[in-house]
Amino acid sequence: MIEVTKLSKKFNDTYVLKEVSTNFEKGKTNLIIGESGSGKTVFLKCILGLFSPASGEIIYNKTPLSKMSSKERTMLRKDMGMVFQGSALFDSMTVEENIMFPMKMFTNDHIDEIRDRANIVIKRVNLINANKKFPSEISGGMKKRVAIARAIIMYPNYLFCDEPNSGLDPNTAILIDNLIQEITKEYQITTVINTHDMNSVMEIGEKIIFLESGEKKWEGTNKDIFNTDNKSISNFVYSSELFKKVRKIYVKENK
């Protein structure tokens, strides 16, 4: 579990996050949503420890991040997996080498054991005939799968995804969303996903935090979104006519 209390972050004199408090639960897909520039990525990078907050605290399993020694931070990082927006695969390595990289860096396991583990996660994310290919030779959807496989190879307790389905076609985006949710349940991981994709919100949003201009404006589940009267989240989610109609039908059916 991750707890965030009154987290603020500023660049120069401008606050991009203002006293955001929430918690992310284990075994759930937690979503951070909001418009572009609302502070989602900064929020995620603060949780990851890539940015130092101006004030507030991030607590991993009752240990505040700011009070962790460098050794504890290193240990925590080994317990994290991250899927970046652009996948962030290492260009000079093949798919298999990319996936094996964290194990090669942090374990003393024999290369055969590492390869076996890599093949298990490769199979888990449904990557077929891609082991020896380089990132430049595979599609966007496959890159995301490789990134997910790399993120879970060390059996992490925390999985972070920054816009995991951006730039993907709707079908592949849904497959990637489902894959992340399945992995979250299967490995009982605390998953935090940064997105502004409405399909993801409706499909896998077990807990949703809505950010607007760096402030938390709403918190709830994908079911709550249909019944909320919060103006900020309604304007954001129901900006299209299609979603307005979907909401009407859902509310009518569930009365």
Partner: peptide, 17 residues
Amino acid sequence: GTMRVTEQIDALEVMGV
């Protein structure tokens, strides 16, 4: 620089490298 732009350095940092 390309590693920085494509977030590969961030990926390494998140892993604890």
